[in-house]
Design a protein around this nucleic acid. Structure first.
Length: 396
DNA sequence: CCTCCACTGGAAACCTAGGCTC
DNA sequence: GAGCCTAGGTTTCCAGTGGAGG
């Protein structure tokens, strides 16, 4: 995050104010030497993937569990161990997050980065058909006799948004890639996505399945204690502070990522304030900051039309409906010199904003006065205004 | 119990930007 | 450069609908 200069770190350490020794231990990328409470899962994943070490194709594998239950961590952990056992020439472990890649095409393009495609068969960022991209990847894998384990994170997003066609291609690629292969480790937050799969894809993909239960608050507490020992200087994070972080993050479902982020940010807040240790206030501030950052980032990365719609929603303090909103939106567009989209499209954008949790939109029937959506802003107007004021289109 | 409003949301057509082949 | 292709965003079209007021 903040690249503290060495001088600064030493200066604070001398003054006894540095709380962190090793901030990395509390970042999402950090893979600890030991993953607590996931021995069973680690062993199961290892057993499924082990055949790769004597050159045969491991079964495809599906990992399920809510966010922050350690699915990605376990996959990374096993991946790191495997990488140590097998040399890089024997095995390629590719990690792609489908939601971050965002489209079917870009998911494939990400995968392609792990495989050395011939210079004349690189994947441009647009212009090729999905089929052509798949073809290029498979051709290169075949030529190089590649053995690939593809860890496909948020596979449910991929299926929900684009269907299972590329998974279908992956699962039936077996013969043509021999003696190389492509094994899939799918990671999903959502069990229901299987309903959308072609039965053939489903049976192939879920040769092995593994469920990750949420962490209990006690488990979170232990995980945090463990990480805090590496991350903070002694005494910087009291047991009480750690307990509060665990309780706050664990209250919904045991989300370890959230708990770890919360503790790290609380540490940063406390350090900035020049405190000797993390107190309750720093933790609560960190929690607010996380929520604020999430919203801020969500708004910032919105396409301009979605921002316009969101801005229109914010004009109605008491909530509104689709028709009224559309008029407000249209006049905003005129004011900012934006193209005015159709009501149908705006309705679609509203659904997207709803999904992001920025607004709440639910269908209500008002009898003779028709059916519409009841739309309400879920974030503070000031936060929205502040974020949008940095936007080139909405300067004021 | 029936009507009929003000939409919803699915489906398909259309548009744009970009790569490919010749 | 012409003429083809695709992905992704948008428009067009329209059947479908929950429930207050009659």
């Amino acid at each position: 995050m903040r690249p503290d200069s060495i001088d600064e770190i030493f200066r604070r350490a001398k003054a006894g104010k540095a709380l962190f020794i090793d901030r990395k231990a509390l970042t999402p990328e950090f893979v600890p030497d030991h993953l607590s409470f996931r021995d069973g899962q680690i062993q199961a994943v290892a057993e499924v993937l082990a055949p790769v070490l004597h050159g045969s194709k491991p079964s495809n594998l599906l990992l399920y569990g809510k966010t922050g239950t350690g699915k990605t961590a376990v996959a990374r952990y096993v991946q790191a161990k495997l990488g140590g056992e097998a040399g890089p020439n024997e095995l390629t472990v590719a990690y792609v997050n489908a939601r971050i890649a965002n489209t079917e095409y870009r998911t494939l393009a990400e995968l392609a980065k792990f495989i050395n495609l011939p210079v004349d068969k690189q994947i441009p960022f647009t212009g090729l058909s999905i089929g052509e991209v798949t073809e290029r990847i498979f051709a290169a894998m075949q030529a190089q006799k590649r053995r690939v384990i593809l860890v496909l994170d948020e596979i449910d997003y991929l299926v929900k948004s684009f269907g299972d066609s590329i998974l279908y291609e992956f699962t039936r690629s077996g013969e043509r890639l021999a003696p190389g292969f492509l094994s899939l480790v799918g990671i999903s937050n959502d069990l229901k996505f299987k309903d959308d799969l072609d039965p053939r894809v489903l049976s192939s993909l879920s040769e092995e399945e593994l469920v990750f239960p949420p962490y209990t608050v006690e488990e979170l507490r232990e995980i945090l204690t463990d990480r805090a020992q590496t991350a903070f200087r002694p005494g910087a994070a009291s047991q009480a502070a750690i307990n509060l972080c665990a309780a706050m993050a664990g209250s919904e479902h045991g989300d370890a990522r959230r708990a770890i982020d919360l503790l790290r940010i609380a540490g940063e807040v406390a350090e900035r304030e020049g405190l000797e240790e993390i107190d309750d206030t720093s933790i609560r501030r960190a929690s607010d900051k996380m929520e604020h950052d999430r919203v801020d980032e969500a708004i910032r990365s919105l396409p301009v039309q979605n921002k316009a719609v969101l801005l229109a929603v914010s004009r109605f303090r008491e909530g509104t409906n689709t028709g009224e909103l559309y008029l407000a939106y249209a006049s905003l567009c005129k004011r900012f010199g934006l193209e005015t989209l159709t009501q149908r499209r705006v309705s679609g954008i509203l659904a997207e904003l709803d999904l992001l949790g920025l607004i709440e939109a639910s269908v209500v029937s008002k009898g003779r006065r028709g059916r519409t959506k009841r739309i309400q802003l879920l974030i503070s107007e000031e936060a929205l205004a502040k974020t949008l004021s940095e936007d080139t289109t909405f300067g004021k």
